[in-house]
């Protein structure tokens, strides 16, 4: 990923014929989120190990793969697209991310915390205790990056694209921020993968 590849477009290059996102949050996806969260609450309240394991493993897999794919695969490709193509891609891609990522993070972390308590991994006598604390620390840094940089950039791009004349420079700047943040999160996900596979095999 080079700076040149992600160079911000000039203001005069503002995309004008780009489809504007009609919704910031895709409303059709909200019922799915509601069902998933309801199942998560049920799994926690009933201490349902299979449900907790499913949400933690499946959610963690989606979270990791999306971060790695966006940061390391899609990011450099987006950087090489024309301004119009980049804006069109953002208009279609970013609304899905607004819904997908917070949901996946919530499912993974809430289920993981409950699972750790149920399986005794949080207990100080557990050989996994230190590894879990390390994992908490990594997730904490990731949360600060995701909440402070990635998510705001995501939503700001969508609002910019809704304007009659979106500012290409702003879109380029925010997309660059989004892709770099996703890349850093992707790299940190590898550390999480190492810790989690170690926890599962001890």
């Amino acid at each position: 990923m080079t700076d040149q590849a992600l160079e911000a477009p000039r203001v005069s290059d503002a995309p004008e014929a780009v489809p504007r996102p009609t919704q910031i949050v895709p409303l059709k996806g909200l019922p799915i989120v509601a069902v998933l969260v309801a199942f998560l609450i049920l799994s926690i309240s009933q201490n349902w190990i299979w449900g907790l394991t499913f949400f933690h493993v499946a959610g963690g897999a989606v979270w990791t793969v999306v971060d790695l794919f966006v940061g390391l695969v899609l990011g450099p490709i987006i950087g090489r697209l024309s301004i119009e193509a980049r804006a069109e891609f953002s208009a279609r891609f970013m609304p899905k991310m607004v819904l997908l990522m917070p949901t996946v993070v919530l499912l993974t972390l809430a289920a993981g915390f409950q699972l750790a308590i149920q399986l005794g991994n949080l207990s100080p006598s557990s050989p996994n205790h230190t590894l879990l604390i390390a994992s908490f620390a990594i997730v904490g840094v990731m949360a600060a990056i995701a909440l402070g940089v990635l998510e705001p950039a995501n939503i700001a791009v969508l609002f910019e694209l809704r304007k009659p004349q979106p500012n290409g420079e702003v879109i380029g700047k925010l997309m660059r921020r989004f892709v770099y943040a996703a890349g850093i999160l992707g790299a940190m996900q590898i550390a999480t993968l190492v810790i989690m596979t170690r926890v599962a095999s001890q």
Binding site: I117, L122, A137, G140, A143, A144, G148, P152
Partner: peptide, 25 residues
Amino acid sequence: VVEVTVGAIALAIVGGIYMAGYFPR
């Protein structure tokens, strides 16, 4: 505003992790 608020959230996250590390004690 963003930088200062990210600092606040980072401290809240550290506090939460610190407490979760002791849990259920």
